[in-house]
């Protein structure tokens, strides 16, 4: 039987991986996947906490909302990636640096 600690460990690693991905991947889609990882870490946390609090409905609900919103965000983000590709001819985020300083 998995303990709460082990869930938390997994999510912490997932969260860290997510942060690692968003800060290192140069491909915009890859970066967005990192964001998904972070959100998933949160999502799993919610479910785990809800489970260990006697299947509290609120926690489960939150994780569902996270999934929904992640999808919405991804939709917008991908649209913007496409737009970026049209402008810059690449989806490498390192290229999009005209705004700085």
């Amino acid at each position: 039987m998995a303990t709460l600690q082990s869930y938390l460990m997994v999510t912490a690693i997932l969260f860290g991986l997510g942060l690692f991905v968003v800060t290192t991947r140069r491909n915009a889609v890859g970066v967005l996947m990192g964001v998904e990882l972070i959100l998933n870490a949160a999502s799993i946390n919610f479910v785990a906490f809800a489970h260990f609090r006697g299947n509290d409905v609120a926690g489960n609900m939150f994780s569902i909302f996270i999934i929904v919103l992640a999808a919405a965000e991804a939709a917008v983000a991908l649209a913007l990636v496409i737009s970026l590709f049209r402008q810059f001819g690449t989806i490498d985020v390192e290229e999009a640096t005209t705004l700085k300083g």
């Binding site: 997510g18 915009a28 972070i38 949160a42 919610f46 965000e73 983000a77 913007l80 985020v93």
Partner: peptide
Amino acid sequence: SSEAALKYVIYGGVASGMMAYGFSLLYG
């Protein structure tokens, strides 16, 4: 405009992800 929006969405995604993770800890 596109560049700004993309940066915004990535930055915002990470930030809200971190927030969600933080919320999960508070909930726990």
